[in-house]
Design a protein around this nucleic acid. Sequence first.
DNA 1: GCCGAAAACGGACTTTCCCCCGCTTATATC
DNA 2: GATATAAGCGGGGGAAAGTCCGTTTTCGGC
Lengths: 193, 193
Amino acid sequence: MTTERADAARNRAMLIATAREMLAEVGADRITMDALAARSGLGKGTVFRRFGTRSGIFMALLSDGERAFQKRVLTGPPPLGPGAEPLERLVAFGRARLRFLAENHEIARAALDGRTPVPFGPPAMMSQRHLRMLLQQMGVPAADLEILAMQLTAALDVPLLLYTAPQDGENSEVTFEDRLARGWEDLVSRLSA
Amino acid sequence: MTTERADAARNRAMLIATAREMLAEVGADRITMDALAARSGLGKGTVFRRFGTRSGIFMALLSDGERAFQKRVLTGPPPLGPGAEPLERLVAFGRARLRFLAENHEIARAALDGRTPVPFGPPAMMSQRHLRMLLQQMGVPAADLEILAMQLTAALDVPLLLYTAPQDGENSEVTFEDRLARGWEDLVSRLSA
DNA sequence: GCCGAAAACGGACTTTCCCCCGCTTATATC
DNA sequence: GATATAAGCGGGGGAAAGTCCGTTTTCGGC
Protein backbone atom coordinates (compact mmCIF):
# COMPACT_ATOMS: atom_id res chain seq x y z
CA MET A 1 0.00 0.00 0.00
CA THR A 2 2.04 2.93 -1.26
CA THR A 3 -0.56 5.64 -1.86
CA GLU A 4 -4.25 5.42 -2.44
CA ARG A 5 -5.34 5.87 -5.99
CA ALA A 6 -7.02 9.16 -6.79
CA ASP A 7 -10.34 7.66 -7.82
CA ALA A 8 -10.40 5.49 -4.74
CA ALA A 9 -9.79 8.47 -2.48
CA ARG A 10 -12.46 10.49 -4.24
CA ASN A 11 -14.97 7.70 -3.87
CA ARG A 12 -14.16 7.12 -0.24
CA ALA A 13 -14.76 10.79 0.51
CA MET A 14 -17.93 10.67 -1.54
CA LEU A 15 -19.22 7.66 0.34
CA ILE A 16 -18.43 9.05 3.75
CA ALA A 17 -20.11 12.32 2.92
CA THR A 18 -23.18 10.54 1.62
CA ALA A 19 -23.26 8.32 4.69
CA ARG A 20 -23.23 11.39 6.92
CA GLU A 21 -26.08 12.89 4.98
CA MET A 22 -28.15 9.77 5.23
CA LEU A 23 -27.32 9.45 8.87
CA ALA A 24 -28.74 12.86 9.53
CA GLU A 25 -31.76 12.31 7.33
CA VAL A 26 -32.95 8.83 8.08
CA GLY A 27 -30.83 7.44 10.90
CA ALA A 28 -28.21 4.74 11.03
CA ASP A 29 -30.32 1.65 10.68
CA ARG A 30 -31.93 2.81 7.48
CA ILE A 31 -28.60 3.08 5.76
CA THR A 32 -28.32 0.12 3.47
CA MET A 33 -25.39 -0.69 1.27
CA ASP A 34 -27.53 -0.52 -1.83
CA ALA A 35 -29.01 2.81 -0.94
CA LEU A 36 -25.64 4.26 -0.07
CA ALA A 37 -24.20 3.08 -3.34
CA ALA A 38 -27.11 4.33 -5.38
CA ARG A 39 -27.17 7.70 -3.72
CA SER A 40 -23.45 8.12 -4.24
CA GLY A 41 -23.84 7.14 -7.86
CA LEU A 42 -21.46 4.24 -7.33
CA GLY A 43 -21.74 0.51 -7.57
CA LYS A 44 -22.50 -1.75 -4.67
CA GLY A 45 -19.25 -3.57 -5.15
CA THR A 46 -17.35 -0.36 -4.65
CA VAL A 47 -18.95 0.23 -1.30
CA PHE A 48 -17.98 -3.20 -0.11
CA ARG A 49 -14.50 -2.87 -1.46
CA ARG A 50 -14.04 0.30 0.56
CA PHE A 51 -15.57 -0.77 3.84
CA GLY A 52 -15.68 -4.51 3.74
CA THR A 53 -18.81 -4.79 5.74
CA ARG A 54 -21.79 -2.77 6.75
CA SER A 55 -20.43 -1.96 10.15
CA GLY A 56 -17.22 -1.02 8.41
CA ILE A 57 -18.92 2.12 7.19
CA PHE A 58 -19.67 3.16 10.71
CA MET A 59 -16.21 2.32 11.88
CA ALA A 60 -14.88 4.62 9.19
CA LEU A 61 -17.27 7.35 10.23
CA LEU A 62 -16.23 6.94 13.83
CA SER A 63 -12.53 6.90 13.07
CA ASP A 64 -13.03 10.12 11.24
CA GLY A 65 -14.38 11.84 14.32
CA GLU A 66 -11.89 10.11 16.51
CA ARG A 67 -9.01 11.66 14.66
CA ALA A 68 -10.08 15.11 15.75
CA PHE A 69 -10.57 13.93 19.30
CA GLN A 70 -7.14 12.40 19.36
CA LYS A 71 -5.63 15.63 18.17
CA ARG A 72 -7.22 17.56 20.99
CA VAL A 73 -5.79 15.08 23.44
CA LEU A 74 -2.29 15.04 22.05
CA THR A 75 -1.72 18.64 21.12
CA GLY A 76 -4.70 20.62 22.39
CA PRO A 77 -4.89 22.95 25.38
CA PRO A 78 -4.79 21.62 28.92
CA PRO A 79 -6.23 20.05 30.91
CA LEU A 80 -7.16 17.66 28.14
CA GLY A 81 -3.97 18.29 26.24
CA PRO A 82 -0.47 18.22 27.67
CA GLY A 83 0.52 20.67 30.35
CA ALA A 84 -1.68 19.78 33.28
CA GLU A 85 -1.13 17.35 36.11
CA PRO A 86 -1.67 13.72 35.09
CA LEU A 87 -4.68 13.26 37.36
CA GLU A 88 -6.28 16.39 36.00
CA ARG A 89 -5.68 15.16 32.50
CA LEU A 90 -7.13 11.79 33.34
CA VAL A 91 -10.31 13.35 34.63
CA ALA A 92 -10.55 15.65 31.65
CA PHE A 93 -9.97 12.78 29.31
CA GLY A 94 -12.79 10.81 30.86
CA ARG A 95 -15.20 13.67 30.59
CA ALA A 96 -14.25 14.41 27.01
CA ARG A 97 -14.48 10.82 25.98
CA LEU A 98 -17.91 10.39 27.52
CA ARG A 99 -19.00 13.45 25.63
CA PHE A 100 -17.62 12.09 22.42
CA LEU A 101 -19.34 8.77 22.89
CA ALA A 102 -22.64 10.37 23.71
CA GLU A 103 -22.44 12.50 20.62
CA ASN A 104 -21.56 9.55 18.45
CA HIS A 105 -23.71 7.03 20.17
CA GLU A 106 -25.67 6.00 17.13
CA ILE A 107 -22.59 5.56 14.99
CA ALA A 108 -20.69 3.68 17.65
CA ARG A 109 -23.57 1.32 18.15
CA ALA A 110 -23.90 0.64 14.48
CA ALA A 111 -20.18 -0.01 14.28
CA LEU A 112 -20.48 -2.90 16.69
CA ASP A 113 -20.02 -6.20 15.00
CA GLY A 114 -20.00 -9.65 16.42
CA ARG A 115 -17.08 -10.64 14.23
CA THR A 116 -14.54 -7.87 14.54
CA PRO A 117 -12.02 -8.53 17.34
CA VAL A 118 -11.47 -5.32 19.26
CA PRO A 119 -14.22 -2.75 19.53
CA PHE A 120 -12.70 -0.51 16.91
CA GLY A 121 -9.02 -1.08 16.47
CA PRO A 122 -7.44 2.36 16.46
CA PRO A 123 -9.94 4.18 18.69
CA ALA A 124 -9.89 1.98 21.74
CA MET A 125 -6.20 1.46 21.29
CA MET A 126 -5.43 5.10 21.52
CA SER A 127 -7.61 5.43 24.58
CA GLN A 128 -5.79 2.56 26.21
CA ARG A 129 -2.37 3.90 25.37
CA HIS A 130 -3.21 7.30 26.66
CA LEU A 131 -4.61 6.03 29.92
CA ARG A 132 -1.61 3.85 30.39
CA MET A 133 0.73 6.74 29.90
CA LEU A 134 -1.09 8.94 32.37
CA LEU A 135 -1.30 6.18 34.96
CA GLN A 136 2.39 5.65 34.64
CA GLN A 137 3.13 9.34 35.03
CA MET A 138 1.00 9.34 38.14
CA GLY A 139 3.03 6.49 39.50
CA VAL A 140 0.03 4.30 40.13
CA PRO A 141 1.51 1.19 41.68
CA ALA A 142 -0.21 -1.45 39.62
CA ALA A 143 1.46 -4.70 38.79
CA ASP A 144 0.06 -4.72 35.28
CA LEU A 145 -0.51 -1.26 33.92
CA GLU A 146 -1.61 -2.50 30.56
CA ILE A 147 -4.42 -4.51 32.07
CA LEU A 148 -5.46 -1.65 34.29
CA ALA A 149 -5.59 0.69 31.32
CA MET A 150 -7.71 -1.80 29.49
CA GLN A 151 -10.12 -2.17 32.36
CA LEU A 152 -10.43 1.55 32.76
CA THR A 153 -11.04 2.00 29.07
CA ALA A 154 -13.87 -0.49 29.30
CA ALA A 155 -15.25 1.19 32.39
CA LEU A 156 -15.24 4.47 30.55
CA ASP A 157 -16.53 3.45 27.15
CA VAL A 158 -18.94 0.69 27.76
CA PRO A 159 -21.68 2.12 29.94
CA LEU A 160 -22.59 4.83 27.49
CA LEU A 161 -22.02 2.62 24.53
CA LEU A 162 -23.84 -0.49 25.56
CA TYR A 163 -25.85 -0.09 28.69
CA THR A 164 -27.98 2.69 27.44
CA ALA A 165 -30.62 2.84 24.76
CA PRO A 166 -30.24 5.41 21.98
CA GLN A 167 -33.76 6.64 22.56
CA ASP A 168 -33.23 7.72 26.13
CA GLY A 169 -34.81 11.06 26.75
CA GLU A 170 -32.37 13.89 26.26
CA ASN A 171 -32.56 15.12 29.79
CA SER A 172 -32.07 11.74 31.34
CA GLU A 173 -29.23 10.96 29.03
CA VAL A 174 -27.38 14.08 29.98
CA THR A 175 -27.86 13.19 33.59
CA PHE A 176 -26.57 9.71 33.04
CA GLU A 177 -23.51 11.00 31.27
CA ASP A 178 -22.89 13.33 34.13
CA ARG A 179 -23.22 10.58 36.68
CA LEU A 180 -20.68 8.60 34.73
CA ALA A 181 -18.33 11.55 34.62
CA ARG A 182 -18.49 12.01 38.36
CA GLY A 183 -18.09 8.30 38.85
CA TRP A 184 -15.03 8.35 36.68
CA GLU A 185 -13.49 11.20 38.59
CA ASP A 186 -14.20 9.37 41.80
CA LEU A 187 -12.72 6.16 40.52
CA VAL A 188 -9.47 7.52 39.19
CA SER A 189 -8.99 9.79 42.19
CA ARG A 190 -9.16 6.80 44.44
CA LEU A 191 -6.67 4.93 42.33
CA SER A 192 -4.16 7.72 42.56
CA ALA A 193 -4.27 7.85 46.35
CA MET B 1 -47.60 -13.59 30.35
CA THR B 2 -49.06 -16.08 32.78
CA THR B 3 -47.51 -19.40 31.78
CA GLU B 4 -45.93 -20.54 28.57
CA ARG B 5 -47.98 -22.83 26.45
CA ALA B 6 -46.90 -26.45 26.35
CA ASP B 7 -46.03 -26.54 22.68
CA ALA B 8 -44.09 -23.34 22.96
CA ALA B 9 -42.06 -24.68 25.85
CA ARG B 10 -41.38 -27.92 24.05
CA ASN B 11 -40.21 -26.14 20.97
CA ARG B 12 -38.03 -23.73 22.89
CA ALA B 13 -36.28 -26.64 24.57
CA MET B 14 -35.98 -28.38 21.24
CA LEU B 15 -34.44 -25.33 19.60
CA ILE B 16 -31.99 -24.69 22.37
CA ALA B 17 -30.87 -28.29 22.36
CA THR B 18 -30.43 -28.25 18.61
CA ALA B 19 -28.54 -24.98 18.81
CA ARG B 20 -26.12 -26.47 21.31
CA GLU B 21 -25.56 -29.44 19.06
CA MET B 22 -24.86 -27.28 16.10
CA LEU B 23 -22.64 -25.04 18.16
CA ALA B 24 -20.47 -28.00 19.07
CA GLU B 25 -20.47 -29.41 15.58
CA VAL B 26 -20.00 -26.45 13.29
CA GLY B 27 -19.45 -23.36 15.46
CA ALA B 28 -21.55 -20.31 16.12
CA ASP B 29 -21.26 -18.49 12.85
CA ARG B 30 -22.46 -21.43 10.83
CA ILE B 31 -25.73 -21.54 12.70
CA THR B 32 -28.38 -20.10 10.45
CA MET B 33 -32.01 -19.64 11.26
CA ASP B 34 -33.03 -21.84 8.37
CA ALA B 35 -30.70 -24.63 9.31
CA LEU B 36 -31.72 -24.46 12.94
CA ALA B 37 -35.37 -24.63 12.00
CA ALA B 38 -34.91 -27.45 9.54
CA ARG B 39 -32.81 -29.51 11.89
CA SER B 40 -35.33 -29.05 14.67
CA GLY B 41 -38.13 -30.04 12.32
CA LEU B 42 -39.82 -26.70 12.91
CA GLY B 43 -40.74 -23.77 10.75
CA LYS B 44 -38.61 -20.71 10.40
CA GLY B 45 -41.38 -18.52 11.69
CA THR B 46 -41.30 -20.43 14.94
CA VAL B 47 -37.63 -19.79 15.44
CA PHE B 48 -38.11 -16.08 14.99
CA ARG B 49 -41.14 -16.01 17.20
CA ARG B 50 -39.10 -17.62 19.97
CA PHE B 51 -35.92 -15.64 19.69
CA GLY B 52 -36.79 -12.55 17.75
CA THR B 53 -33.44 -12.26 16.12
CA ARG B 54 -30.41 -14.31 15.36
CA SER B 55 -28.45 -13.02 18.28
CA GLY B 56 -31.51 -13.76 20.41
CA ILE B 57 -30.68 -17.42 20.12
CA PHE B 58 -27.28 -16.84 21.61
CA MET B 59 -28.67 -14.65 24.34
CA ALA B 60 -30.96 -17.49 25.26
CA LEU B 61 -28.08 -19.93 25.27
CA LEU B 62 -26.06 -17.60 27.42
CA SER B 63 -28.88 -16.95 29.87
CA ASP B 64 -29.18 -20.66 30.25
CA GLY B 65 -25.61 -20.99 31.42
CA GLU B 66 -25.87 -17.82 33.41
CA ARG B 67 -28.62 -19.25 35.53
CA ALA B 68 -26.29 -21.89 36.92
CA PHE B 69 -23.61 -19.29 37.52
CA GLN B 70 -26.02 -17.09 39.37
CA LYS B 71 -27.02 -19.97 41.60
CA ARG B 72 -23.43 -20.61 42.57
CA VAL B 73 -23.07 -16.97 43.49
CA LEU B 74 -26.26 -16.71 45.48
CA THR B 75 -26.38 -20.02 47.29
CA GLY B 76 -23.11 -21.83 46.59
CA PRO B 77 -20.15 -22.33 48.92
CA PRO B 78 -17.88 -19.43 49.87
CA PRO B 79 -15.92 -17.53 48.90
CA LEU B 80 -18.05 -17.16 45.79
CA GLY B 81 -21.26 -17.81 47.68
CA PRO B 82 -22.33 -16.13 50.91
CA GLY B 83 -20.30 -16.60 54.03
CA ALA B 84 -17.00 -14.96 53.21
CA GLU B 85 -15.84 -11.41 53.66
CA PRO B 86 -17.18 -9.04 51.00
CA LEU B 87 -13.77 -8.31 49.53
CA GLU B 88 -13.01 -12.00 49.28
CA ARG B 89 -16.32 -12.56 47.58
CA LEU B 90 -15.68 -9.71 45.21
CA VAL B 91 -12.37 -11.20 44.15
CA ALA B 92 -13.87 -14.65 43.81
CA PHE B 93 -16.71 -13.27 41.78
CA GLY B 94 -14.34 -11.60 39.38
CA ARG B 95 -12.35 -14.72 38.85
CA ALA B 96 -15.43 -16.87 38.37
CA ARG B 97 -16.98 -14.46 35.98
CA LEU B 98 -13.85 -14.23 33.87
CA ARG B 99 -13.82 -17.99 33.74
CA PHE B 100 -17.43 -18.07 32.69
CA LEU B 101 -16.88 -15.54 29.97
CA ALA B 102 -13.84 -17.33 28.64
CA GLU B 103 -15.76 -20.58 28.50
CA ASN B 104 -18.68 -18.96 26.74
CA HIS B 105 -16.71 -16.60 24.63
CA GLU B 106 -18.10 -17.76 21.33
CA ILE B 107 -21.68 -17.58 22.48
CA ALA B 108 -21.27 -14.22 24.12
CA ARG B 109 -19.71 -12.78 21.01
CA ALA B 110 -22.49 -14.07 18.82
CA ALA B 111 -25.03 -12.62 21.22
CA LEU B 112 -23.71 -9.12 20.60
CA ASP B 113 -26.06 -7.07 18.54
CA GLY B 114 -25.88 -3.48 17.45
CA ARG B 115 -29.57 -2.99 18.14
CA THR B 116 -30.28 -4.51 21.53
CA PRO B 117 -29.89 -1.98 24.38
CA VAL B 118 -27.95 -3.59 27.22
CA PRO B 119 -25.43 -6.31 26.51
CA PHE B 120 -27.70 -9.07 27.70
CA GLY B 121 -30.42 -7.79 29.99
CA PRO B 122 -30.54 -10.25 32.86
CA PRO B 123 -26.88 -11.31 32.86
CA ALA B 124 -25.19 -7.98 33.17
CA MET B 125 -27.94 -6.83 35.47
CA MET B 126 -27.29 -9.54 37.96
CA SER B 127 -23.60 -8.88 37.82
CA GLN B 128 -24.21 -5.23 38.49
CA ARG B 129 -26.60 -5.85 41.34
CA HIS B 130 -24.24 -8.27 42.95
CA LEU B 131 -21.26 -5.97 42.71
CA ARG B 132 -23.30 -3.14 44.12
CA MET B 133 -24.35 -5.19 47.08
CA LEU B 134 -20.81 -6.25 47.87
CA LEU B 135 -19.46 -2.74 47.51
CA GLN B 136 -22.10 -1.50 49.85
CA GLN B 137 -21.29 -4.18 52.40
CA MET B 138 -17.66 -3.19 52.17
CA GLY B 139 -18.61 0.37 52.90
CA VAL B 140 -16.88 1.71 49.83
CA PRO B 141 -17.41 5.43 50.07
CA ALA B 142 -18.58 6.16 46.56
CA ALA B 143 -21.07 8.87 45.84
CA ASP B 144 -22.87 6.79 43.27
CA LEU B 145 -22.64 3.09 43.94
CA GLU B 146 -24.81 2.16 41.03
CA ILE B 147 -22.48 3.85 38.60
CA LEU B 148 -19.44 2.34 40.20
CA ALA B 149 -20.97 -1.11 39.96
CA MET B 150 -21.70 -0.50 36.33
CA GLN B 151 -18.17 0.62 35.61
CA LEU B 152 -16.72 -2.35 37.38
CA THR B 153 -19.01 -4.71 35.52
CA ALA B 154 -17.76 -3.27 32.29
CA ALA B 155 -14.16 -3.48 33.43
CA LEU B 156 -14.69 -7.12 34.26
CA ASP B 157 -16.72 -8.29 31.29
CA VAL B 158 -15.51 -6.33 28.38
CA PRO B 159 -11.85 -7.14 27.98
CA LEU B 160 -12.43 -10.83 27.58
CA LEU B 161 -15.55 -10.32 25.59
CA LEU B 162 -14.41 -7.72 23.14
CA TYR B 163 -10.73 -7.05 23.27
CA THR B 164 -9.69 -10.53 22.48
CA ALA B 165 -10.06 -12.65 19.40
CA PRO B 166 -11.73 -16.03 19.72
CA GLN B 167 -8.85 -17.73 17.98
CA ASP B 168 -6.22 -16.72 20.48
CA GLY B 169 -3.96 -19.62 21.24
CA GLU B 170 -5.14 -21.55 24.28
CA ASN B 171 -2.05 -20.88 26.28
CA SER B 172 -2.00 -17.20 25.64
CA GLU B 173 -5.70 -16.93 26.37
CA VAL B 174 -5.29 -18.56 29.72
CA THR B 175 -2.52 -16.15 30.48
CA PHE B 176 -4.60 -13.21 29.47
CA GLU B 177 -7.48 -14.34 31.64
CA ASP B 178 -5.09 -14.69 34.50
CA ARG B 179 -3.67 -11.24 34.02
CA LEU B 180 -7.20 -9.89 34.08
CA ALA B 181 -7.95 -11.79 37.25
CA ARG B 182 -4.92 -10.35 39.00
CA GLY B 183 -5.75 -6.94 37.70
CA TRP B 184 -9.25 -7.25 39.04
CA GLU B 185 -8.00 -8.26 42.45
CA ASP B 186 -5.64 -5.34 42.41
CA LEU B 187 -8.34 -2.93 41.37
CA VAL B 188 -10.96 -3.87 43.92
CA SER B 189 -8.41 -4.14 46.70
CA ARG B 190 -7.39 -0.59 46.08
CA LEU B 191 -10.97 0.57 46.09
CA SER B 192 -11.61 -0.98 49.45
CA ALA B 193 -8.68 0.72 51.09
C1' DG C 1 -65.69 -33.86 26.77
C1' DC C 2 -66.75 -29.46 24.04
C1' DC C 3 -66.00 -24.57 22.46
C1' DG C 4 -64.22 -20.33 21.63
C1' DA C 5 -60.51 -17.15 22.10
C1' DA C 6 -55.79 -16.47 22.33
C1' DA C 7 -51.47 -18.07 21.27
C1' DA C 8 -48.30 -20.54 18.36
C1' DC C 9 -46.99 -22.53 13.96
C1' DG C 10 -45.13 -22.67 9.18
C1' DG C 11 -43.35 -21.47 5.04
C1' DA C 12 -43.64 -18.32 1.18
C1' DC C 13 -42.02 -13.57 0.48
C1' DT C 14 -39.13 -9.43 0.93
C1' DT C 15 -35.06 -7.17 2.09
C1' DT C 16 -30.33 -6.71 2.77
C1' DC C 17 -25.77 -8.34 3.15
C1' DC C 18 -21.85 -9.87 0.88
C1' DC C 19 -19.12 -12.44 -2.85
C1' DC C 20 -17.47 -12.77 -7.38
C1' DC C 21 -15.24 -11.76 -11.60
C1' DG C 22 -15.06 -9.58 -16.18
C1' DC C 23 -14.32 -4.75 -17.42
C1' DT C 24 -12.37 -0.05 -16.79
C1' DT C 25 -9.14 3.39 -15.18
C1' DA C 26 -5.08 5.33 -12.94
C1' DT C 27 -0.18 5.45 -12.61
C1' DA C 28 4.65 4.28 -13.28
C1' DT C 29 8.05 3.53 -16.85
C1' DC C 30 10.14 4.23 -21.17
C1' DG D 1 2.64 10.14 -25.28
C1' DA D 2 2.26 4.87 -25.43
C1' DT D 3 1.96 0.83 -22.80
C1' DA D 4 1.87 -2.54 -19.23
C1' DT D 5 0.00 -3.69 -14.92
C1' DA D 6 -1.93 -3.30 -10.82
C1' DA D 7 -5.74 -1.36 -8.60
C1' DG D 8 -10.39 -0.10 -8.66
C1' DC D 9 -15.20 -0.48 -10.45
C1' DG D 10 -19.85 -2.39 -10.94
C1' DG D 11 -23.85 -4.98 -10.91
C1' DG D 12 -25.68 -9.75 -11.08
C1' DG D 13 -26.56 -13.51 -7.92
C1' DG D 14 -26.59 -16.52 -3.85
C1' DA D 15 -27.60 -16.84 0.99
C1' DA D 16 -29.29 -15.51 5.16
C1' DA D 17 -32.24 -12.45 8.13
C1' DG D 18 -36.57 -10.99 9.23
C1' DT D 19 -41.94 -10.32 8.06
C1' DC D 20 -46.66 -11.70 7.29
C1' DC D 21 -50.80 -13.94 7.56
C1' DG D 22 -53.74 -18.02 6.91
C1' DT D 23 -53.91 -22.38 9.50
C1' DT D 24 -53.38 -25.18 13.58
C1' DT D 25 -52.94 -26.06 18.47
C1' DT D 26 -53.59 -25.29 23.29
C1' DC D 27 -56.31 -24.42 27.37
C1' DG D 28 -59.61 -22.27 30.63
C1' DG D 29 -64.36 -22.31 31.26
C1' DC D 30 -68.92 -24.77 30.65
